[in-house]
Nucleic acid binder design. Structure first.
Lengths: 150, 150
DNA sequence: ACCCATGATGGGTGCTCACCCACTAATTTG
DNA sequence: CAAATTAGTGGGTGAGCACCCATCATGGGT
């Protein structure tokens, strides 16, 4: 039982570490799947935001997702290159660009959601359905508290 | 109620995303605190491993923490520079280096543990004591399943 | 003694990520 | 109408991370 691979128990006792490590595993696995499609996690987030909230001014998308406006521009470049989103100048304020989800974007979003669900099933495999639900509830509380800010 | 900062609900419904985001928050906050001491997360992990398992051959430390041996050498350089660890050649096998935690190292470990606990309290603030315990149990299951490998 | 394997180390690479600044075009303010 | 502000864009930077290889000293096997 002298497992040379065992992590230090004093670390795994810290929820901070468990969160960090399991979160990283989730992130890494999902990112790997997305990378097969030459996409990153932000692409998914952007598509999801457009689907949930409808067309957005580009700037507001960046604010909502807490991402740098210049990075947002790059992500939209990539999505637009595959016709996943439309970018049109707002005629009322020609500085602004309104971003809209295309049908192809909706299809892609569905596929990415499925990937995320698959990763969830991988990672949460040792948990029962009840436990998965518990975990989701607990993490939701934590997450909304985080985004609400201190 | 039109919170322009609200994240897409279709994402927060995915446990994968909650894990990833909360884990990242935990990691980032802890890393920021460590950075104030010019340390990174690995330094904590190394100190914890030495405390939990006692003196280690350097190579075995690397295996245990699943880190590249050459990176381990650099981390130990930094810890040794502040006398947090002792590195002595094993007289029986003079290729090996035995790494030992010093008293100063133990002190530092205590401080880093306290930082981790503080971050935990920040992040888990919205949860009751019972819920925190639940979360820890659930994450432990997930984590051991992850490290055990499929 | 010789050859090969092993432990430690230094150096370097490629990637992601989160920033930050400069610039242009368009709009609002005074 | 001039000046300040805002939206989007392109470019670059620095940190962290996970690698990988070459080298050197040592030890073990035959």
């Amino acid at each position: 039982m002298d497992d040379p691979q065992a992590p230090p128990p004093s670390l795994t006792a810290l929820t901070t570490y468990l969160l960090s490590r399991t979160g990283k595993a989730a992130r890494t696995r999902l990112a790997a799947r997305f990378a097969d499609r030459r996409l990153r996690l932000w692409h998914h987030a952007v598509l999801a935001a457009l689907s949930d909230f409808g067309p957005h001014a580009q700037r507001e998308l960046a604010v909502r997702l807490a991402i740098d406006p210049s990075d947002m521009a790059k992500i939209l470049d990539e999505l637009a290159a595959d016709d996943r989103v439309d970018r049109v100048r707002d005629p009322a304020d020609r500085r602004r660009v309104t971003v809209t989800l295309t049908d192809a974007g909706r299809v892609l979003l569905g596929e990415l959601d499925a990937e995320a669900a698959a990763v969830r099933d991988e990672i949460l495999e040792p948990l029962t359905a009840d436990e998965r639900e518990q975990l989701n509830v607990l993490l939701s509380k934590v997450f909304t508290h985080l985004t609400a800010g201190t």
